[in-house]
Amino acid sequence: MIAYVIRRLFTGVVLLLVVSLATFVIFFVVPRLAGASPDTLASRYVGKAPTPQAVQAVKERLGLDDPLIVQYGRFVKGIVAGNEYKAGNDVVLCNTPCFGYSFRNSVEVWPQLMDRLPVTASLAAGAALLWLLAGVSIGVVSALRRGSFFDRLGMTTALAGVSLPVFFTGLVSLALFSYYWEIFPAGGSYTPITENPGLWAYSLVLPWCTLAFLYAAMYARLTRAGMLDTMNEDYIRTARAKGLREGAVVTRHGLRAALTPIVTIFGLDLGLMLGGAVLTESTFGLPGMGKLAVDAIRGSDLPIVLGVTMFTAFFVVIANIIVDLLYAVIDPRVRLG
């Protein structure tokens, strides 16, 4: 068990390195291949007065003249051991884990990520709760009453749900609930839960529902398919033949097996979402990780983009490990090892 976790953590670290390397390649190697020199890269981070001296200074400060491998090494070292940065009269110490400083505003990346995390976490947690409850229960009921009116209605709605882009649903719900009926606030009015829990929930209702609609639809379809599959299995027939009550058959045998793939996907989805629900945050103007990343990509602010992608990959790794541990609980056939 412990060996298993350690092994998973190790592969997780490898995964994180790969993700960071890929991000780094996209921002620094691909442009180089496309003909950009360290000078043109540096000129992206100079303010509105790109004098040659300024470009030179930025190049030195960001170390853009160093070989790519050295630049990448510096980034990895920062995460593990922290880094020192020159900031004029002071030398600033950036503690572990140090993701460096934004190329744009010279603000440390880590606190910026920590700033945005609560927003994204609030969004993800609320939406996940909604879609798990709605999606799984609709899926189960639909499977058990296959062909019924409920099944048809549920599955039609679910199909519509997976066919609607979240930024469109978001806009329509904003137009209806915020502009015409004035029930919920317009986009962007996020209040931290620590400040006012009521307002926090109120301001997130629309984003939660928008996001949950999409995912609930996917989960309802998955759950239904999984349930139908398992309920056809021999062991279910056996259980029934043994004279178990239908309720017990469904919950103890059917649901258990049908839930395993759902749990895997849920882990992955939640992990990815903690790294930013890019489209939902953009549509509702929520200052979360996704919006931070999109803005950073637009400004070629590599340290921030790296920070967000690493963060996301980290959550996915953790979520996967937790999911695998949960497996053993849900599905008795699975043994870790």
């Binding site: 100079v46 303010g47 007065a49 900031a87 004029g88």
Partner: peptide
């Protein structure tokens, strides 16, 4: 005249 402060005019 410093390398650090880059945002303003020169």
């Amino acid at each position: 005249f410093s390398d650090e402060l880059q945002k303003g005019p020169k």
